[in-house]
Design a binder for these strands. Sequence first.
RNA 1: GGGCGCUUGGCUCAGCUGGUCAGAGCGGCUGGUUUACACCCAGUAGGUCGGCGGUUCAAAUCCGUCAGCGCCCA
Length: 889
Amino acid sequence: MRSVELAKAYDPKSFEQRVYEMWKREGHFQPKIDRNERPFTIVIPPPNVTGVLHLGHALDNSLQDIQIRYRRMKGIPTLWLPGTDHAGIATQNVVERKLRKEGRSREALGREAFVEETWKVAMEHRAIIDTQLARIGASVDWSRERFTLDEGLSRAVREVFVALYERNLIYRGEYLVNWCPSCGTALSDDEVEHEEEPGALWHIWYELEGGPCPEWPSGKIEIATSRPETLLGDTAVAAHPEDRRYAGLIGKRVRLPLTDRIIPIIADSYVDPAFGTGLVKITPAHDPNDFLVGQRHDLARINILNPDGSLSSAVPEKYRGMKVLEARKAVLADLEALGLLNGEEKTTHAVGHCYRCHSVIEPYLSKQWFVRMKPLADKALKAWQDGEVVFFPRKWEHTYRHWLENIRDWCISRQLWWGHRIPVFYCRDCGATMVRREDPTVCTQCGSDNIYQDEDVLDTWFSSWLWPFSTLGWPKDTADLRYFYPTSALVTGYDIIFFWVARMIMAGMEFTGQSPFKEVCIHGLIRDKQGRKMSKSLGNGIDPLEIVEEYGADALKFTLAYNCAAGQDILIDRDSFKMGSKFANKVWNASRYILMNLEGRTYLPERELSYNDTDRWILHRLNEAARTVSQALESWRFNDAAQAAYAYFWDDFCDWYIEASKLSTKFGDEREKDRATTVLLKVLDESLRLLHPFLPFVTEEIYGMLPNAKGRLISARYPEWTKEREAPDIQAHFEALKEIVTLVRTLRSEFQISPEASIPLSLAFDDGYVHAAFIQEHVALIRLLAGASSVSIGQAGGAAAPEGTVSLAGKGLTIHVQVGGLLDIGRLVERLSKEREKEAAYIAKLESKLSNSAFLSSAPPDIIEKEKDKLAASKTKAAKLDLYIRELS
RNA sequence: GGGCGCUUGGCUCAGCUGGUCAGAGCGGCUGGUUUACACCCAGUAGGUCGGCGGUUCAAAUCCGUCAGCGCCCA
């Protein structure tokens, strides 16, 4: 073989993009469809085409990539389907902002041109996102990329709308919706974010219509409200029916201040007698609870707001056009002037905000389309109960269940231009409503061609909830749909369980009769080290591409996976990624070492190859690691998987195996050098396979230089645990060897014996020391690793130490280290005494446990045995320490 | 108001169904340029696992409670 020179430093920039292009070009991302094999499929949670990928996306996609690569290497036909979401409000906002900056506006542009403009922006962002995905190494099948506004997906949306309408699960109605005055559209309940904000409760007098009367001598009642401006839309005042204080008032009427209206006092059990004065103003058009009260009592609904959040013509002239806060001030001032204001108390209350633009949400009366959710939720609930879908970690199933059990109808119409237009047509002549799969040209009822389409578009999530099957071709019965659906898993953050996960399951159950995925992996959110969300306004965001630039995509992926503990948020900063970078560097350098020493070596065929004990040890460790990593990945425990891979490679392979192999590669004969080099290459090959899902780029790059590699690593087979490689006895022996080496190293380090100092060792085994033969056989290895000049096997344990030596107490043996005059005896005695004290405390603890009859009678026998063994070992060690101390003093 | 989560060495966190699980990375300290790696090697210090109570032969690990922090839903 010829040596291969790797660059001195690990430099991901020099190969990551090249490697990605190669994978793509060679078609490794496309599934190798095999009808006899069940595929592994993930559809990507589609990023919004509003923006660019942030670290949260990097996490989500890194985790998916790890799974996809792992399954692909297992030989499973694997599909990871990419795509993006048109993100209705978000994108429209971005474009409107952009237009405003250019001095243009949506209105001036008109619907068609605006949508065209938005397509342009969306496609620009999509291109950026695609590039980013490639840069972080996402092994997605680009040939199947989708967009929620694609023709096929739009067809699915329309089919679903019409079908739900036909099943009487979609209706149009006038209800209070969450209105964002800034975006000018309705929002679903889930799109409103509630925040505690300081506010006040104002106490206001309402005068009785007839003034003072026998039942109410004061002639006025006091109500408390946090929103005084809405009194302009009041249509009643209510008290609890059992509230004795106000029993006499029910049925009377009051004069609504600042208006000329007279409104009734009613009784309704919604009122909390303990709140405020126990009397509540009722504003059916501007409060969800009042809306219900109004329904029960058949009250008028007076809409006092315009769509832009200003006061409408339904209020007295002077308030018209004012914004809500302005009107509040004016109303309060006027009440004050009239002597109708009875003070204010400071409080805090929850205020709803738009999840997109953060404006205060107004409950607003309007005609909207809704989905009747209960029947859909019941199916989704059943799917979970039947075990058709399982969450990792399980705790999120409670969140899922709770939301579904308390489901409310879903407002799906949005007063936007960007999105799927609602497929409903109305006839101007006869008033017919047409909901059809194809656009009608004339009224289906009266034949008039004077028809028009609903102006609104659908909530973005109305297309997202179909994503797992619409992307595969549904409603067409495509080959992809039949083969890949239902998908295997969904990987996403807990923040969109309601928005998305639950709704996808509903849609899947309703339209395909199956849960769209079997497993749901819910991971945490990325936060900064103070636990704050990363956001533009805080300026604490980290651009994943900056990390790729600085440390490489592998470092990004590995660090995120390593820190991804089941369902926990990930607190991270820029420096955190050094961890992954250092690991990738370690892989690079270990490989570099092996590859630089190939010159003149012969790669031995399997039949001429033999494995020594060290080889069998590392193969055992590799075998264990493969099992641990697989088990962890299959139960979505990314941190455990990454840690196992890390520990195997760094601690076992680099620190022990490669070091041990130098005995052969440096000091062996030619044949032994060939043998050892061949095994090193084989183990490296398998180690790269093990690591590939976590460090795809660096492992592929190195794999390409291995003389023994075939094909590409991305499509190579993943190491699997095998019985044949199990070697627990060798594992135990090797641990004993490591103990000896470590004891000597510790001594050298603590007493600062220089590396050059030659220290002969003599080992004395206790009776029945099970590792004796192994140790004896590998004295040369101990000599190398411990840096000893010689290692000999001496007298049985307990014997007096030879002159000029220091004794170390190992498990079942004694190490005599010939130090001559190199040691500070006083310090040594001190150290030994400290060790002796620890041992004494441990012995005391074990003895008390073992003399406890309750323990002896209740604990399982094997536990008791173990404790006894520990005590015996500890006592032996203590005795040795006593001996050493005596000898030295 | 309802629900959930967190509180483990200086920092960020792992520790599933109770008995070598008291761990990792970073940081600290000591020593080291043996031709893979100073993004390294060898060694080392540091925690009564938030407080209290309980279950158990045995609890960081289960139960209760209190305190602090955070999230979600009303």
